[in-house]
């Protein structure tokens, strides 16, 4: 499949949504609502549950399972209050020493007028900042689209996993084609140029691991994911807090491909 075909695949409405994964990854789930500031955004499903017996906080962008849900959830594009709910629960997870597990499937943060009025940029900035220094292990899994800052807000984590067809991009190929070439028919070219596939992410070090997709055996697929998450949380919990935060800092500090004094930093394609 070409990058754009992959993107179209993960956008299909018959794919499992975040809640289908939550049902199989976590037990004893209690969903929690609200940012305690303005409202509750159902585009982010959040709560507490156990992963292989360990209590964790989960934060998931939810596209919705039917049209009504999709419309209520802005098709999975979170509003500022969604990110602020996530931030509230991140801080809570730190208080109780729970790891955070994020599931991401979003075209990006919601772009409506009310989102701008309520500080969409500030909400994302605060979410990234909070995860950067959060004193508990953090994981994220991109199950479909990882759209720009709206996805990064939940992906500034110790480990990032992706499904084999999942994509992660600074801008949608549609947006890129329209801005750069004023030509929406060149979406496929934009998808190629942007390098958005899970395999690209592995190469750039943006993701650590890719999981095979096998929706015919969805419970088994989720079991594999759950095992890996549990193993990684076990490993991350052996680090001292200083080491955990140092490793997370370095994980993001390394990003950048440039020349310095004629010497390349990072690997060009």
């Amino acid at each position: 499949m070409t990058p754009y075909e992959k993107l179209k695949t993960v956008r299909r409405s018959d794919r499992p949504t975040a809640r289908d994964y939550l049902d199989l990854l976590f037990e004893d789930r209690v969903d929690l609502c609200g940012d305690r500031r303005f409202g509750d955004d159902t585009a982010i499903t959040a709560g507490i549950g156990t992963l292989d017996g360990v209590p964790v906080t989960y934060l998931a962008t939810e596209k919705g399972r039917d049209l009504q849900e999709r419309m209520r959830n802005q098709f999975g594009c979170p509003k500022p209050e969604g990110y602020r709910k996530a931030i509230r629960l991140m801080r809570q997870s730190e208080k109780f020493g729970r790891p955070v597990v994020c599931l991401v499937d979003t075209l990006g943060a919601y772009c409506g007028a009310e989102a701008e009025e309520r500080g969409q940029g500030e909400a994302i900035a605060e979410s990234i900042l909070t995860l950067s220094g959060l004193k508990t292990p953090t994981l994220s899994l991109v199950i479909g689209e990882g759209g720009s800052g709206g996805a990064l807000a939940l992906c500034t984590t110790d480990r990032v996993y992706m499904l084999e067809n999942a994509c992660y991009s600074v801008i949608s190929p549609e947006g890129c084609a329209s801005i750069l070439w004023k030509d929406s028919s060149r979406v496929s070219d934009a998808a190629d140029a942007l390098h958005i596939t899970a395999q690209d992410m592995l190469q750039f070090g943006v993701a650590e691991q890719i999981f095979d997709e096998d929706f015919k055996h969805f419970p088994a697929m989720c079991k594999t994911i759950r095992r890996q998450m549990a193993d990684d949380l076990k490993l991350l919990s052996t680090f001292s807090l200083e080491q955990l935060l140092e490793n997370r800092y370095n994980r993001f500090r390394k990003f950048g491909i440039f020349e310095e004094g004629g010497v390349m930093h990072g690997t060009a394609l």
């Binding site: 220094g133 992660y168 600074v170 390098h195 800092y249 500090r253």
Partner: peptide, 19 residues
Amino acid sequence: ARMQEGIVSLMQMAKVSAA
């Protein structure tokens, strides 16, 4: 973000934020 640098430009947001 500078889209011509793809995902690496998105990661700059995380890198600067951490600093």
